[in-house]
């Protein structure tokens, strides 16, 4: 006895999985890109306590971190059209991921910025650097090194979060597996391929971040 894996099924649907993996990567890429931009912006306005913007960023971060992505996507996909704003599925998913990821990235950057000693800022000021020069030449390079592990973890987190985008009618890995199970009852094969698909995407990414993190640590900041 024993279960026979249906290799023909696996071979047949591998191209579909690869396609879905492509979509996941694409979503993740744009989601991460915009998350980083939003996160950096929020972290800087909060770090410099810029009035109004700082409170707005605070409200956004709380809202974004304390609501699930599914709800955010529902709102974008089904809620906004009622007031006349419509997105296509892909834009909707990227917007949702960026909205969610932005706050996580903001907190990672903030951790990095806050790790910079007061003395570094003061010594930058005393050679006449402006605030923006201070951020660019002194604070950010050091903050990035500190924030790198958290930023990497957020990228992995966002990639995994793409698994709910089927609710805005996108054929990602998760929805593909569900569809195949529904159509062919090949639950084991479909789920096996699903796990393999995520691992193929995520393992190299984690490895890359671990490597980068080590390099940054060896770069050995700190006087």
């Amino acid at each position: 006895m024993g279960y026979m894996v249906d290799t023909a099924f696996i071979v047949k649907f591998t191209p579909l999985y690869i396609e879905a993996m492509g979509l996941v990567l694409e979503l993740c890429f744009f989601g991460v890109l915009f998350s980083l931009i939003i996160g950096l912006f929020c972290a800087i306005v909060r770090y410099y306590r810029i009035p109004v913007l700082r409170s707005a960023a605070g409200v956004y971060i709380e809202l974004s971190r304390n609501t699930p992505l599914v709800i955010q996507l529902f709102f974008l996909y089904f809620g906004l059209p009622r007031v006349g704003i419509t997105f296509d599925s892909f834009t909707c998913a990227v917007t949702g991921l960026s909205f969610l990821g932005g706050s996580y990235m903001a907190e990672a950057f903030r951790g990095g910025l806050e790790a910079i000693g007061r003395g570094q800022i003061e010594s930058g000021l005393s050679i006449g650097l402006s605030r923006s020069q201070l951020v660019r030449y002194v604070a950010l390079p050091q903050a990035l090194a500190v924030a790198a592990p958290a930023l990497g973890a957020n990228v992995i987190f966002l990639l995994k979060e793409t698994s709910v985008v089927s609710i805005v009618a996108l054929a990602d890995l998760m929805s593909l597996a569900k569809d195949l199970i529904g159509l062919y009852y090949k639950t084991n094969e479909a789920l096996l391929m699903l796990v393999a698909g995520y691992l193929i995407l995520l393992l190299p990414l984690s490895g890359l971040f671990r490597f980068a993190e080590r390099r940054l640590r060896y770069a050995g900041f700190g006087n």
Partner: peptide, 19 residues
């Protein structure tokens, strides 16, 4: 910013930029 260019300051903890 202008004034500080005319006033050099050195700190106890060096505060060189480590990167």
């Amino acid at each position: 910013r202008l004034i500080r260019q005319k006033i050099g300051m050195v700190f106890q903890s060096y505060e060189l930029f480590p990167h």
